[in-house]
């Protein structure tokens, strides 16, 4: 694209600014509510970025990442509920191991069929998990969810937990970013653009799709398990299809083709929802209409369009010429 080093420096400084802003939140405000909103942005940001590894980078539109998000949340919620608060961290680890296994097996099943089938089958299986959770009241608490999930030790302090989330989210995003720009990431982008040619490079398309599916699911689950501590509660809605849908909307809102687009999308989405959604019960109508306009007029998302404007105004700074 542009001058590689320049691009990398500007991306690095952007991330530094973002991290700084989030690190300062508990210092500039004591409002528990605002810290909670910031935590939501962080967790959803990770969820959206992990989702975008699938769609934006590899071209696999999953409508079922809520399955893993919810699995992460429920493994924490259930273990803390049944075994006590000390199990909070082991539960995260156990949930992640479970997700590795589940995403491997389910991935084998749904990746074979590709395209729209892939999208719809991921949706169907996530809805299956939702139904099981919803109906298995004795074990999962069904529609009531699980309340009172308190992280152990010093993590019980809300501000400490906030920084815990912040560190894990940004380390995860950093790992995903490294992946996106590694040879593996390059193969994934090539898989999206020309799978036949990838096969003729001697690489297996489906195997790489399975790998990224597992990576994406892993980090979705991590986001879900962090969320259990943020709100101290979990709910079947975390597995519901609208949760997968929100990760998709956030990614498109921010921009699919930029690595940090989905994170920005998540932040904007949550801030609008926080301000407008609180005032009307017709939030889906509003976000649906906004996204409809985005899809038709600005498919590159906010970040993509901003970059385009920047390139338009400052040809010398943002041109693609070598």
């Amino acid at each position: 694209m542009t001058n590689d080093t320049a691009r990398r420096i500007s991306a690095t400084s952007l991330w530094t600014i973002i991290i700084l802003i989030f690190a300062l939140v508990p210092i500039v405000t004591t409002s528990a509510y605002k810290i909670n909103v910031a935590s939501h942005i962080l967790v959803w940001g990770l969820f959206a970025v992990s989702f975008n590894m699938l769609w934006g980078i590899t071209g696999m539109l999953s409508f079922g990442q809520a399955l893993y998000y919810g699995l992460g949340a429920y493994s924490v919620g259930l273990m803390v509920d049944y075994l006590g608060s000390g199990w909070f961290l082991p539960a995260i680890a156990l949930g992640l191991v479970m997700v590795i296994i589940v995403s491997f097996l389910l991935g084998l099943l749904v990746i074979r069929v590709g395209g729209v089938y892939f999208t719809m089958l991921t949706l169907a299986f996530a809805q299956l998990a939702w139904q099981i959770t919803f109906k298995w009241y004795d074990f999962t608490g069904g529609d009531d969810g699980i309340q009172g999930i308190i992280p152990p030790g010093i993590l019980e302090n809300r501000i400490v937990y906030y920084y815990f989330v912040l560190v894990i989210v940004f380390v995860s995003i950093w790992i995903l970013k490294r992946m996106a720009y590694s040879p593996f990431g390059l193969i994934l982008r090539c898989v999206q653009q020309n799978p036949a040619r990838v096969r003729f490079l001697g690489r297996r398309v489906r195997r790489n799709q399975l790998r990224v599916y597992m990576v994406s699911s892993f980090f979705a689950a991590l986001a879900g398990s962090l969320m259990a501590g943020v709100d101290s509660s979990i709910h079947t809605d975390m597995l519901f299809w609208t949760t997968s849908g929100e990760a998709i909307l956030m990614s498109v809102l921010g921009g699919l083709n930029q690595f940090f687009g989905p994170f920005i999308g998540a932040a904007i989405f949550i801030l609008i929802e926080d301000n407008i959604g609180a005032r009307t019960e017709y939030w889906p109508l509003i976000i649906g209409s906004i996204m409809l306009v985005m899809v038709i007029l600005f498919p590159k998302g906010i970040v993509g369009e901003v970059l385009r404007l920047k390139a338009w105004f400052g040809k010398n700074g943002g041109g693609r010429q070598p």
Partner: peptide, 24 residues
């Protein structure tokens, strides 16, 4: 480009809009 994904996204927006219009 990426037509399939955007179709699903667009029809997903229809779901959100239609559901709420019905409620309205």
């Amino acid at each position: 480009a990426n037509e399939g994904g955007f179709q699903i996204l667009m029809t997903y927006c229809f779901i959100l809009i239609i559901d709420d219009l019905v409620k309205l």
